[in-house]
């Protein structure tokens, strides 16, 4: 696990939904992470390559198939750099099969919408702490 304090870490939020972006930024910022955002897959990949965030939140409902591809690409990038990158996807239609797919594509967790902010904060903290 990376021993650096949480404040030096960054998170990347990928969604094209402004309302969701606002809420997520509010939550993640409140956790003490610096926040970068991207509203499409290409800028997300560029940002991730530049800042190598500790946490990436990917909104599958906004990105569709390309969201899964982003997961796989980012997990490949993290593996190549031998650095950890927690990939978390958010989805409204979370079924057993789609969760299996997300994990197969490199996501660490699949969080379901609609979410409760407090619960979401807790889940993300657990992921970052590796518990």
């Amino acid at each position: 696990m990376n021993a650096a304090p949480l404040t030096t870490r960054s998170a990347l939020i990928v969604t094209s939904e402004p309302a969701l972006l606002y809420c997520l930024r509010f939550i993640v910022h409140g956790m003490g992470l610096s926040v970068a955002t991207a509203d499409d897959v290409i800028s997300a990949q560029a940002q991730a390559a530049a800042i190598h965030p500790a946490l990436v939140l990917i909104d599958l409902d906004a990105l569709g198939s390309r969201g899964f591809a982003l997961c796989r690409n980012l997990s490949g990038m993290a593996a190549a750099r031998k650095k950890s990158m927690h990939l978390v996807v958010l989805s409204l239609r979370s079924t057993a099969a789609s969760e299996a797919k997300a994990r197969a594509m490199g996501a660490e967790a699949v969080l379901q919408k609609p979410f409760d902010p407090t619960a979401l904060r807790q889940q993300l903290n657990q992921i970052l702490l590796g518990t």
């Binding site: 569709g64 198939s65 390309r66 899964f68 591809a69 997961c71 796989r72 690409n73 057993a96 099969a97």
Partner: peptide, 28 residues
């Protein structure tokens, strides 16, 4: 068997694997 609820059907071949972006395009 994938897990209790699912069976995995794999189509495998010799050659290159599918790049994730290419698959994303095929899916549409």
């Amino acid at each position: 068997r994938f897990d209790h609820d699912f069976v995995a059907l794999d189509l495998q071949w010799q050659g290159a694997p599918i790049p994730a972006d290419l698959w994303a395009a095929w899916e549409e």
